[in-house]
């Protein structure tokens, strides 16, 4: 089962990367990042099962906490951007573009 779990994890991570690269809606890009974190969690759980140790599950708890903190700060930034631009489309946010 470990190889299959790692395979599912890698496919989910790839879908998340492709989503980040193709979408322009900032909220959907954030959700793609959450999907990538979930994929990494799945491989943590699978490898923790392979080694018969619970340390991987402890790290999954840490990753979930950091993901919650990241979602809170990121959504606050998105709300702040929306106040300025009246949109969350990344085409309008090009201040650093050369």
């Amino acid at each position: 089962m470990i190889a299959e779990a790692l395979f599912f994890s890698a496919v989910l991570f790839t879908i998340g990367v492709v989503g980040v690269l193709t979408r322009r809606n900032a909220i959907i890009i954030f959700m793609c990042v959450e999907l990538m974190l979930n994929a990494v969690n799945l491989s943590f759980i699978a490898l923790s099962r392979l080694h018969g140790s619970a340390n991987g599950q402890v790290f999954v708890l840490f990753v979930m906490t950091i993901a919650a903190a990241e979602a809170a700060v990121g959504l606050a930034i998105i709300i702040s951007i929306f106040r300025h631009h009246k949109s969350v489309d990344l085409r309008n946010i090009n201040l650093l573009k050369g």
């Binding site: 089962m1 779990a5 599912f8 969690n41 799945l42 759980i45 699978a46 099962r49 599950q57 708890l61």
Partner: peptide
């Protein structure tokens, strides 16, 4: 569901 099947019920 996959976590539960991989014996990580709490997670």
């Amino acid at each position: 569901a996959l976590y539960v099947m991989l014996d990580a019920q709490f997670i």
